[in-house]
Design a protein around this nucleic acid. Structure first.
Lengths: 296, 296
DNA sequence: CGACATGCATACCATCAGCGTATCGATTAC
DNA sequence: GTAATCGATACGCTGATGGTATGCATGTCG
């Protein structure tokens, strides 16, 4: 049974007349008759009754009519969504990004792209780095904003921001005036960090371990803005990426950390093997051409 | 594109492996490959990406997977419902009946049939006579309980009950003791009748007109039980079919009307051209063989 | 009551699509 | 570099599809 048979079935059920329906469908009456036979044999029962002038659904046919409408509608809907997705002006970009760029990089990118393509929608998901890689892998997400750069053999990469990791200290703190600081200098301070499970939390833990100490975590938060506030209120120090906190309401001060490990690169990433949808491709091109790499 | 292609598509999307999926589906790998081609060309876009070991849906394929699941589910559901309908033990009988038999004949028939076939369900609709005929005509209903008998060339008929029309009077009424009464004797009484639009209302109107008077309608109700109560309370007299009121709580008394018009036959009716579903056929046979014609 | 009209089913035939076997080609792993 | 894996392609056969012509059943009209 063809999907087209179901489509024809709906027309026939409405016309209640094979010859007319066949003409409307641009085929011959015997052919429609045989299409109906295919449907009937697929369901194992007769679906129309012969009338004086035409045909009419019987109880079984009514059920099939429902199914045919639902089935063809499902196919049509998918076709329309695919067409929308294929249109670079109206598609959907499934974008996964790190928690740590939610308040800084992301809004800038989306705002700028929106001017170029106002009808492109975004399906956003905020996740930890390894989940983003996983989502790109499975196709759950098309584009990720991520750090560090994933396997270059599998994923494309466009550098967005070279961040310097900073020690974030309260205003007036002893280290606040330094132009640069060794992380070890803060070994005895109470720390404010992200909750375990966040990708960046692993980065900071690793940095402290490399500096020879385990941080005393006074508070754990789920976003960098909160950490900024806590630090500004004098409740501890924190490690944050440069440029990741907007404005300076909290009064906290960021001092760049010394050392090669105290950097990270954030970039756009996508799966090489899976072609991007036009809208995603457009977003990627836009970012590549228009967005300067910012260095914090 | 075949409906089977969509079914195969779902299996393939889950297996992510053509050779395996083909084996599971009992076909050859090249055949599944070509089935996939058909689906892809029907949607106008590639749906899977080649992977190292196997294939994987791309964003378009995800949409098609949804559609394929929905479409095949719709077809399967219809098939199941048809099978249920074809099973005389578990089918559904779409039965339309007159308001006037809702409290008397109907419960008896259903109760009796239920003992024979407890799993058969009924889709009941209570309607006026001409609507029942119309529903049988269009197939909205399979079996009707109706009066009078519709066109014998189009509808089958099984007599259920030969009713005598009665004058229903309050207890102690002057006519209450008569063995038989002329309708004209009640010409001056206040009447209780069904609301206009009910088939039986037309019958009573016609009877009164034939008896040479227009009834003064004090109350109009939507069912015979209410009319019985109103008459029992002394608020008027009414014309009702014999045996249409259960029990005698109201105390009202029914006196048979004189004259040949003061009868009506109620029966089972069905459309000759449309074959009945097995459950409906069984119901019809049951009624024909087991239910005696009752004469009121 | 018989000829006609209507409308679906069927017969027949040319063509095309579907299916299996064998094979190719690309990718990856050892 | 070689072997293995897995999807794509080539080829030939069979069966399905679709058009034209026709049959058959049912009403209708003279």
């Amino acid at each position: 049974m063809h999907v087209e048979d179901l489509r024809w079935f709906v027309v026939l059920a409405e016309a209640e007349h094979l010859t007319e329906a066949a003409a409307a469908l641009g085929t011959s009456q015997p052919n429609l008759s045989r299409s109906l036979r295919r449907v009937e044999s697929a369901f194992g029962v007769q679906l129309f009754e012969r009338e004086h002038r035409g045909v009419r659904l019987n109880p079984y046919g009514r059920l099939v009519l429902e199914a045919a409408r639902a089935g063809t509608a499902a196919v049509d809907t998918a076709r329309q969504r695919i067409d929308a997705l294929l249109d670079p002006e109206s598609g959907v970009v499934r974008l996964a990004f790190l928690h740590s760029v939610a308040t800084s990089l992301m809004p800038d990118l989306l705002k700028a792209f929106r001017e170029l393509a106002p009808n492109v929608r975004f399906a956003l998901r905020q996740e930890a780095g390894h989940d983003i890689v996983h989502d790109l892998e499975t196709g759950e997400a098309e584009i990720g904003i991520i750090s560090p750069r994933p396997d270059p053999a599998v994923f494309g990469w466009h550098l967005l921001e070279r961040q310097r990791l900073c020690l974030h200290v309260p205003p007036g703190h002893a280290l606040a005036d330094r132009r640069r600081v060794e992380l070890a200098a803060a070994a005895e301070e109470p720390f404010v960090g992200l909750r375990p499970g966040f990708g960046f939390r692993r980065v900071t833990d690793e940095l402290c371990r490399a500096a020879g100490f385990a941080p005393q975590l006074a508070f754990e938060a789920t976003d960098l803005a909160t950490i900024d506030s806590l630090v500004g209120a004098g409740l501890g120090v924190a490690i944050i990426p440069s440029g990741s906190v907007r404005g300076n309401e909290s009064g906290a001060v960021s001092v760049p950390l010394a050392g090669v490990q105290a950097r990270r690169e954030i970039g756009l990433s996508w799966r090489l093997r899976t072609p991007l949808t036009p809208a995603a491709e457009r977003f990627r091109t836009f970012v590549g051409e228009r967005v300067p790499v910012s260095t914090g």
